[in-house]
Amino acid sequence: MDDDGFYDRLRPQADFSSLVAQDSFSPVPGDWLVATADIVDSTGEIGRGRYKTVNMAGAAVIAAIMNAMGGRAFPFVFGGDGAAFAIAPRDAERARAALAAVRRWTAEEFGMQMRAALVPVAEIRAAGRDLRLARFAASPGVDYAMFAGGGLAWAEARMKAGAYEVPPAPPGTQPDLTGLSCRWSNLRARNGCILSLVVQPVPGADPEGFVQVARQVIGLTGALSRGGHPVPASGPEVRWPPPGLTLEAQARHGAAPLPRYRLALLVKTLVAWLLFRTGLPVGGFDPASYAAQVGANADFRKFDDGLKMTLDCDAATRDRIVAALDAAAAAGAIRYGLHAQDEALVTCFVPSVRKHDHVHFIDGAAGGYTRAAAQIKSA
């Protein structure tokens, strides 16, 4: 398939369960590239209480690429401690520069090391894996890319082995992280716990086994309020000062002194808090409508070479999900990990509060996807 307009031609699908079917995905053009990035020793960083920082760094990868692409749609997925995306060859140097800048910024701003790699899709296929894409319409304003074929997992493994590296940019390089924010309060579980779930097909196994258990798990979440969505229909709670204020200041201060930028952000978020408290529309911005859009636009479930979900889950539904996964794992069809915690967190990319295309990345607030995936790796 010619790469010109490939992603734009994919029709977003509103039914998440329909994405289980393999024919829902289209092969990425062979001359494209896939990028992947993650935090080194993210499990250790989370164990040291830096889970918000890890999530911010992962979301920064997406923000930097979005800004480099000038708002053009492209396929990406947030992984908690990192991110991945696919791009056409004409955008390769933009992507390389953005990844290099985020690597440097993460080290200098947070003292954390980030890996990054840019891998040709042709080499993924030469290794016996594939990269296929679908688009899920989370809401009328936002859709997210869904990935299948094992290509992302292969690229990540090669990145961790040191292949296809994108080196850090020179010292002092700043990525463009305009729109990246972390202002919402954490989301307390309303039904028992926030369950972070990662389900992966076993390489070489009959893919139908994964398809069946994914359908079963998605079906079980239908018994939960709003399908287990951790964000209330009215949106997250707003507090002042926001818990992620310092992180956002670190992400956005650029050449400005951090204390001065943090003070300016403190004033700006106070105004926003007052608007949300009163609910009064101002200058085309409707706080109640915007807060509701946060939940509608959030990526609490996705296909990322497997099934990932962050669910507000009761004990009975959790037990049924675990029983289904145990049976499929015993049959050799899947491997899985899960992590339960009391809260979820939201990290946001908001190009404009007056438009409906703002995106919101959901993860468990005490390790989430990173700790769930670690269970698979240690099994």
Rank of each mutant, 00 (worst) to 15 (best):
G368R: 04
F300G: 05
M309K: 06
S289R: 12
D314P: 15
A329H: 08
D326C: 11
A344C: 05
P281D: 02
K302R: 08
D342P: 01
F303H: 11
R354L: 12
I362K: 05
V350E: 14
D304N: 11
A316V: 13
V294R: 00
T278N: 10
A373C: 15
V282R: 10
T269L: 00
A365T: 05
D299G: 12
A272E: 04
R371T: 05
V322P: 01
E343I: 01
Y336V: 08
Y290E: 06
L274Y: 03
A330P: 00
A331G: 05
D326I: 02
G337R: 14
I321G: 00
Q341S: 12
L338G: 01
A366M: 12
F300A: 06
T370L: 01
I321N: 02
R277T: 13
T278S: 14
T370H: 06
A288C: 13
W273R: 10
R335A: 13
A330E: 14
K302T: 03
V350C: 14
F361A: 10
E343S: 08
D286W: 09
L280I: 14
D286H: 11
G368K: 07
G337T: 08
A272V: 02
M309D: 10
K308H: 15
R301A: 05
D312L: 07
L345K: 08
R301M: 06
V322C: 01
D286K: 06
V282P: 07
Q293E: 06
V322F: 00
V294M: 02
C348I: 03
V353D: 06
Y369E: 10
P351W: 15
V271L: 09
F285H: 07
A331F: 02
D304Q: 11
G367N: 04
H339K: 01
A366F: 00
A340T: 12
A365K: 02
